[in-house]
């Protein structure tokens, strides 16, 4: 029982650790400050939005994490960071939002996005922040873990045009807890490269290898030569290796045979019969031997015993056992 409780606790700690590690992999990914004709919330309203990307390969629960528009100094007064942040978010909803527990929308699947609406209307759901953002000034957003660790930060420029976004050039490709402007770019949605992508990847999934081969090897000759060379090399190495093994084991076998007492000399050869006849004879013998029971009828019958006696009348059963002489 104790062992079971220990295992359950161990599993719980492991799960908590995994989630905690996963939270470090969350990144602000795209932000729209003025939204009048772009992405809509579940009520069909255009709201400013903030997209967060889970760049890990595990599901990350965002409950009890904090998004704020000002940096928060956690005092070193013995109070737990979680309690302090919780208290801070309750007292300053215009600055800090605590993501509530128990909402399925805040569990972010691997390599996917979640979009929060910065409308100051928490009654609309867990994905609606408790504060709004002023597009006329520069804003900074902070993402804190439950223990007060800063996970990510983004500086949003002032006066962004309506329906434009400030987005990471490649999804999730930013340094943790620091803002690097070089990793971000403005998007106006006019071209594929500048697409507005709430809940989707900023960078279209493309394979550079395919593009490169398409441009540099349009007839496929280069790849054919390279690939055939690799296939031949792999099998040539195997060939050489097992040719050597064959020679080694062949010699060893010859040595073993030589050391054994001489078997009957090649009587078959001496008898003058050809190899084919010998092979045929051996083959026939093997066939007879291996197929001796292959041609069963497949019919199972019950063969009635002809004895008229039963267990009651059997002489054998009726006879007494031989007395056993016990030694004293």
């Amino acid at each position: 029982m104790k062992k079971r409780i220990f295992l359950i606790l161990l599993a719980a700690v492991a799960v908590t650790t995994v989630f905690a590690q996963g939270r470090k992999e969350l990144r602000f990914n795209e932000v729209m400050m003025v939204n009048d004709s772009s992405y809509i919330d579940q009520y069909g309203q255009h709201q400013p939005w903030v997209e967060v990307f889970n760049r890990s390969y595990g599901t990350v629960g965002m409950e009890q994490m904090f998004i704020s528009n000002k940096p928060i100094d956690i005092p070193d007064n013995g109070m737990k960071p979680k309690d302090f942040l919780n208290d801070y978010a309750q007292k300053n909803p215009g600055i800090c939002y605590e993501i509530p527990r128990g909402d399925r929308d805040t569990k972010v699947a691997p390599r996917t996005h979640v979009v929060f609406f910065a409308d100051g209307n928490t009654a609309a759901g867990a994905l609606h922040l408790s504060f709004s953002l002023d597009p006329s000034v520069a804003n900074t957003l902070y993402l804190y873990d439950v223990n007060g660790d800063l996970v990510d930060v983004v500086n949003i420029p002032a006066s962004m045009k309506p329906n434009t976004t400030f987005a990471l050039k490649a999804d999730g490709q930013s340094d943790p807890a620091t803002f690097n402007a070089k990793q971000w770019s403005m998007r106006d949605g006019k071209t594929d490269a500048q697409a507005i992508t709430p809940g989707k990847f900023n960078l279209a999934d493309q394979n550079d290898n395919i593009e490169a081969f398409h441009v540099r090897d349009p007839y496929g000759v280069i790849i054919a030569i390279m690939a055939m060379s690799v296939v031949f090399s792999a099998l040539l190495i195997l060939y050489l290796c097992f040719k050597l093994f064959g020679k080694f084991f062949g010699r060893k076998k010859e040595g073993d045979e030589a050391s054994e007492p001489a078997a009957q000399p090649a009587a078959i050869a001496a008898s003058g019969s050809s190899d084919n006849e010998v092979i045929a004879a051996i083959g026939m013998a093997l066939f007879q031997h291996l197929n001796a029971h292959d041609q069963e009828s497949g019919i199972i019958t019950i063969d009635h015993a002809h004895e008229a006696h039963s267990a009651w009348s059997s002489k054998l059963n009726a006879m007494g056992h031989m007395p056993i002489h016990k030694e004293q």
């Binding site: 054919a224 097992f242 064959g246």
Partner: peptide, 18 residues
């Protein structure tokens, strides 16, 4: 294994792919 050079025949036939 008895005749490892046959591996090369297996390799050559892959030219069908390319």
């Amino acid at each position: 294994l008895a005749n490892p050079k046959l591996m090369l025949v297996g390799a050559a036939a892959q030219f069908g792919i390319f």
